[in-house]
Write a protein that binds this DNA or RNA. Structure first.
Lengths: 210, 210
DNA sequence: ACCTGAACACCGTTCAAGT
DNA sequence: ACCTGAACACCGTTCAAGT
């Protein structure tokens, strides 16, 4: 052990959580815990002991538990943005790409239900957390760009893009939340049918004319 | 004081919480507490002492705190259903009534944000609570009826009514949640504009043709 | 039947102290 | 600078005991 460490070149690899790496480790462990045990399963004690660290060590890196959750939420928005960008581009940045984005959005929520709930939870100080605000805006911006592209392709009305994007966001968010809360019943087919139907109603809803 | 009580006829008015009235009092107090201090402000201790009762007295009437919250949620769905019915009828059971319903839905959420959150919260055993399931279904049924009426008026596509109602529900629910979570910023004008825009996009989204 | 009071096993957070 | 350990003020829930 000591020999191995001596033999290794000084590559700044942190074996102990020091010099700022504990923050990343805490965030990573929090994400894992939430995925496995839900938000209520996340306690400062468990996340601390999982990293072999005191339960109060967290306070060096986060103001409080809410700040940790805000960081978790920001991380979620980052992942969501990447997912949306991929779907949009792979779909060809047109109508197919737009539909793929809608599907990707709801799938993200269903794949990471607890994480998604933290992102939109009430217990998070959304307004006064710059990182969370920024990451949330970043994910939203992907949708705005897509809307503008659809408008240029004459597939969407010439309304204010941000307004239209907000409407679309609210709709897919609503579908995701109803599904997550089990409000659509236990059948996955019901959820899938609603997603498909919703995307088609979005298409006719934002189409030019009328 | 004592005189007044003696003079009053025996009208079965409960001065002490006994014989099943404590349940109603607990529910009522829980709703009031949540409205004033949010869900986190609701503790069995405070709601108990507000009624001059031990903090464990609740367990005679509810299985646990989650069951109390489920009752709160069911109560909310009952109020929401009444609000929706009123809006639909006063609007003339047509296009105006439908738009009034959409507005009434989001307004309910904004008027009772904490209560609304409990209705859709994750901490509630939605599936295994018959009363909550029934009240939720009742509110949804109002929307389904309205959709059928719109279809008969040729104002909506001839799709499966429940499917269309689910889509509409998801959309207004999404708008409500984004507004409640402060995701639309502090300006009420932004919220109002989104509500208006959303209702108009719902109109073109569910319109016949295309 | 209905409620109480003590006890239990938790929780987030503070703070003086260690290195 | 970073982390610890004890302490504090909470919390939901259980349970024997009272009436």
């Amino acid at each position: 052990m000591t020999r191995a460490r001596a033999a290794r070149p000084a590559k700044k690899r942190p074996d102990r959580y020091h010099h700022g790496d504990l923050r990343r480790a805490l965030l990573q462990e929090a994400v894992r815990t939430i995925a496995k045990h839900g938000v209520d399963g996340l306690t400062l004690r468990t996340v601390g002991s999982s990293l072999g660290v005191s339960r109060t060590a967290l306070y060096r890196h986060f103001a409080d538990k809410a700040a940790l959750l805000a960081a978790v939420a920001a991380d979620g928005f980052r992942t969501l943005r990447v997912d949306l960008e991929e779907a949009w581009q792979r779909g060809g940045r047109g109508r197919a790409g737009f539909e793929a984005m809608g599907l990707a959005y709801v799938r993200f929520a269903l794949a990471h239900p607890s994480h998604y709930r933290v992102m939109f939870g009430a217990d998070i100080p959304g307004a006064d957390n710059p990182e969370l605000t920024q990451e949330g805006a970043g994910a939203f911006q992907v949708l705005v760009y897509a809307v503008v592209a659809l408008q240029q392709l004459k597939l969407a009305r010439q309304d204010e893009p941000r307004q239209m994007a907000l409407f679309i966001w609210a709709t897919v968010h609503g579908v995701a939340m109803l599904a997550l809360d089990g409000r659509l019943g236990p059948e996955p087919a019901v959820v899938n049918r609603l997603i498909e139907y919703t995307i088609d109603r979005l298409r006719t809803g934002i189409a030019p004319g009328r």
